[in-house]
Design a protein around this nucleic acid. Structure first.
Lengths: 169, 169
DNA sequence: CGCGGATCGTCAGTATCGCTGATCGTCACC
DNA sequence: GGTGACGATCAGCGATACTGACGATCCGCG
């Protein structure tokens, strides 16, 4: 979070811009999420890491993920993931373990404490999401998230399909 | 734009997270917008400034805005606005003018070139927004933007109404 | 008229963040 | 057994936005 850079006075014309609407929604939610996760000693991104690890752990019975795979899943740089795991490890929430089959890889595991924290924090996350969407009626909220999912599926991958208009200056 | 930090492989569990969905939507749109605006020699934020100036210029017949007011409207810091205007002025799109009534204030005006550029770039912006929403049917797209507007109205202003759960560690 | 507090624009310094490039150990292939 | 590719790590860089200070100006008060 960069902080208070969104005083939110952009009424009128600006509110018509999809970019501003998305940016605001994203930043506002991030603010709240960060605040709500603070008591658990983590931030949204860290919770994301924990969830990704756990998702691997249950999925197809025990898949383990390396730092790089986690980085890929979460969309962060591999070098950023190093620091991220460092922090989580320092807090005792995860554990690095050299993969037996490929000793270059660091398999990242949830500790018992990490799994407990993850579960509790995830409740808080859901709560924040619910509160955030509270101004919308249920139907609308459902359409919103479904629409975002559709957009994600459509634009999710990095792509450079665009040749912007010609008239360069 | 921070760049390629969103490889977009977060299928499954992660796609259920509102934060990731919003972040992705925002970043993807930003990418495209940035690319589309590049030929006009500006970025989304700069177009925002031009639009805000113009919105002031037409609204109630000729309201003029200072750097600070623009900063407030766009949700950027006043010091950031300085550099932003610097850039636009260098490109000849805007003009700083000392306010006659309050010589501390810099009134920012669109040049003829600036207004021309703004209009053209705005067409590109609309085009990008349309393309971005293309995966949704019209009805859904309308609900999405309306929902975002509602959320903006509800959460838009900086507020600290939350006392996150108690169980701090 | 002159003073003091407040506001606006500006700038320099700082903190944060993510990426680039290089290094070290390891694997895989010939 | 040697060579090229890959995973994790680290140092350094560039971008970005904020903090704090400063000069100019306005406003209210005596």
């Amino acid at each position: 979070m960069t902080g208070a850079q969104l005083p939110g006075d952009l009424d009128g014309a600006l509110a018509a811009r999809l970019g501003y609407l998305l940016k605001n929604a994203y930043f506002r939610l991030s603010e709240r999420m960060t605040a709500a996760l603070d008591p658990y000693g983590m931030n949204p991104r860290e919770l994301g890491v924990l969830s990704a690890i756990q998702a691997g752990g249950i999925e197809e019975g025990g898949q383990e993920w390396s730092q790089m795979e986690l980085a890929g899943r979460l969309g962060v740089d591999r070098t950023t993931m190093v620091a991220l795991i460092d922090g989580l490890e320092r807090k005792g929430l995860v554990e690095r373990r050299r993969s037996a089959r490929d000793r270059r890889r660091n398999v990242v595991l949830l500790t018992a404490e990490g799994e407990r924290c993850r579960r509790e924090a995830d409740v808080a996350r859901l709560q924040v999401e619910r509160e955030f969407l509270a101004p919308l009626d249920e139907e609308t909220a459902a359409v919103l998230t479904e629409a975002l999912r559709t957009l994600f599926a459509a634009h999710g991958r990095v792509s450079r399909p665009h040749c912007p208009p010609s008239s360069a200056t």
